[in-house]
Design a protein around this nucleic acid. Sequence first.
DNA 1: CTGTTAGCGCTTTCAG
DNA 2: CTGAAAGCGCTAACAG
Lengths: 345, 345
Amino acid sequence: MAVTIREVARRAGVSISTVSRALSGQQRVRAENLRKVQQIVNQIEFCPSAVAKSLVSRTANAICLVLPKPTAKWVSNPFFMELIRGIVARANRSNYDIIISSGASEQEELKEVSRLFRGGRVDGAILLSSRKEDAVIDFMKMNGYPFVLIGRSDKYDGIWSVDTDNRAAAGGAVNHLVTMGHKRIGFVSGPSNLVVSVDRMEGYKRALRENGLTWHPEWVFEGELLLNSGYRSLSYFMNQPDRPTALVVYDDLVALGVIRALNKLEIKVPDDLALVSFNNIPLAELSIPPISSIDIGIYHLGDTAAQVFIQNMQHANSEFGGPKRLIIPHELIVRESSMIPIHIF
Amino acid sequence: MAVTIREVARRAGVSISTVSRALSGQQRVRAENLRKVQQIVNQIEFCPSAVAKSLVSRTANAICLVLPKPTAKWVSNPFFMELIRGIVARANRSNYDIIISSGASEQEELKEVSRLFRGGRVDGAILLSSRKEDAVIDFMKMNGYPFVLIGRSDKYDGIWSVDTDNRAAAGGAVNHLVTMGHKRIGFVSGPSNLVVSVDRMEGYKRALRENGLTWHPEWVFEGELLLNSGYRSLSYFMNQPDRPTALVVYDDLVALGVIRALNKLEIKVPDDLALVSFNNIPLAELSIPPISSIDIGIYHLGDTAAQVFIQNMQHANSEFGGPKRLIIPHELIVRESSMIPIHIF
DNA sequence: CTGTTAGCGCTTTCAG
DNA sequence: CTGAAAGCGCTAACAG
């Protein structure tokens, strides 16, 4: 901030333009001048004003992250921090800044994002999750702002996205449980307006079908509900003679809650009920018992999203293949919660 | 971005300066012109370029958050996300942007932060945690960049900081355990280079003294160690006749790990050993058993840090009282993990 | 109260 | 290859 390009030019005894050219590295500068400029730059630790650069280049070299509404404890899910870490690490390495934005209501959220874009502070956004009806996605689309979605959009096609194959992952969980001898497998879902939650549920249903198993609506629980007031319903179903012997849970944190609820009902995991969940946050391993979980490579997901965005920015006009959807591989980590094979028929 | 102040001026039939004055709200503009300008602004959704503003005002209206090195799973502690939420919410409300920065090594970290400051992208920083020897703090101090520290610095005095009274909090935990009849109370500490870890340990020791209890070095465990390879040592001490009957643990996540380790050793919480930990992240409640934890108001901590920074910025030259240290109140939330009073003498 | 004029620090023409 | 000049969008200082 303190030292400008003008000062460098003065000291090096060349014009500002020459310094600019020397710094850009793209343009021809006489070797002697180049050397002189580089020396001064190092000496006085010159660092060009990102702000001035932005003004003239009309790009911000910054990406906005929209935090899901801080409604729930949901955001404090380590999932997001891991995602953010992946994004920030990659972005910084490419000299992009990450700006975090949030808002108390959906409207405030949009206002905030709008301010960032219209003010020229960001070039685009990475959306950390997608709802079925997502005002932020609509907003981006409508204004033609570039963005990468982590997840999937039901509504729009041609958008850049990075995602897990959640259906396949859920299928993998079911298959694993089937292998362990389970035939009555339930599902604990997340908020039904989250695409990820729906996808996982669909994968679960499909896998049941493919395994020739029947699907009972009573075996599907709403996770949020479960944790707040659903003890009774859980208790009821778990006391039926044909209760599920295994559960696929859409998120580790929810799985933790489920285990606690089951614990109160004196249902033991995995002895009485097996459990597989999603995301494989560090906590899955610390749980009692440790939870089998599908590692979806959260950091990698974030890293890739940032890469996609940045590449896309740099090749914006070169028709760089058009919108694409990338899938990050997942892997089931088997732990105690699903390790006891059973044979109840 | 698309529409400039020039356009507004043209449409309103006034000069650019008038529009600028009308927008600033600080200066006198004829009512008629004011109205006209406001109308146009709303109509074409004019939003002044934050970048241009930055260039001329030499302020960025942005704060940098330095993520602790992504070494450990530590960062994925919900603690940080909660802190960030608090900061972002407050900052955005005051039209400040939050830029997240990180680096693989301490050196990269500094380079990243330096780039942000020198490039004029940020006005200052909020440091999310402090090590005993903290290069980032040194760097800020040395360059005179404004910052607020969440935590405490051993090394420097006159710096703005927002903190928990960790000694008192730890004392509270000890007192609570004493009330429940415990006399042999151990401590599980965090990395010894973290100020917060040290403070909590000191509070623990002091409280023991004040309660007339003796402090045994063997009753103090290094948390990190414990989780990785310390089962054996834990096992050893827990089998001594005079083993602790209660533990104060410096962080919820570590407490979770401890519970799991104890579980393997068939030591039951709270029946055989009581537990109190710090931070009260949502998980503390989901644990089996639910963990007594000291709620330090993480969100509030973040919110306050942002407030302090912003106020300080705005009154920078008016000698706004000089550096200060704010303490956010804490509260012990008692749960099952410490609920069974014991009387072993 | 208003318009004109000069920049903020940098990139980018356009002549040399 | 180089320097001078124009301008990115806005604010601030100066005459009216």
